[in-house]
Simulated assay, not measured.
Amino acid sequence: MPWFVKIEEGIVDQVTFDQYIPAHKAFVRDLITKGHQAKTGYWGERGGGMLLFQAASMDEAKSIVEQDPLVKNGCVKYKLHQWCVVVE
């Protein structure tokens, strides 16, 4: 399966953002269980992060990202890219 990357920037205050982190972590764990090999994290400097995962297509990747609680609750703006691996 191709890899996809959601690069995000936080757009709400920290208190609002933090209330959705447990749901975001549960969402990512569910992706892992479903075989998407998801990984999530944040930048060392404050204000954004990344979700790396596999999906069958860009359409599926978009559908997955739309279900992320951080996206559904308006906590981040993001860009979604297909990542083409050249060396493993």
Rank of each mutant, 00 (worst) to 15 (best):
L70V: 04
W3Q: 05
V76H: 08
P22H: 05
E60C: 04
G47E: 05
S57E: 04
Y78K: 07
I64L: 11
S63F: 09
L52V: 14
V65N: 03
V71F: 08
T33Q: 12
V85K: 13
A55P: 06
G35T: 08
E45D: 13
H36L: 03
L80G: 02
C84D: 10
P69C: 03
Y78D: 01
G48L: 08
W3F: 10
A26T: 13
Q82A: 11
V85E: 12
K62Y: 01
Q14I: 11
E66N: 13
Y78W: 15
G35K: 03
A61V: 06
L52Q: 09
F4Q: 02
M50K: 02
E66W: 01
D18K: 11
V87Q: 11
P2C: 00
C84G: 00
V65P: 02
H24K: 04
Y20K: 02
W43F: 15
I32N: 09
V76K: 02
R46C: 01
L31T: 05
G10S: 02
D18Q: 13
L80P: 04
Y42T: 12
K25R: 14
D59Q: 13
M50T: 11
Y42S: 12
N73D: 07
D30M: 04
K25S: 07
G10D: 09
L70N: 12
A55W: 07
N73E: 08
L51C: 12
L52K: 07
C75S: 04
G74L: 05
Y78A: 03
F53V: 07
T16H: 07
A38P: 07
I21Q: 03
Y20W: 13
L70D: 03
A26E: 14
Q19R: 15
Y78F: 15
K39W: 12
H24D: 08
C75K: 06
V87T: 05
L80I: 06
F17Q: 03
C75I: 01
V65A: 14
D59E: 15
D59V: 10
D13R: 06
A55N: 06
V12L: 04
P22K: 08
M58I: 12
E8P: 00
E9R: 15
I32Y: 05
I32A: 10
V5K: 02
L52E: 08
Y20C: 00
E60G: 01
D68S: 07
R46N: 10
G35V: 07
D68N: 06
I64E: 05
F17A: 01
P69K: 08
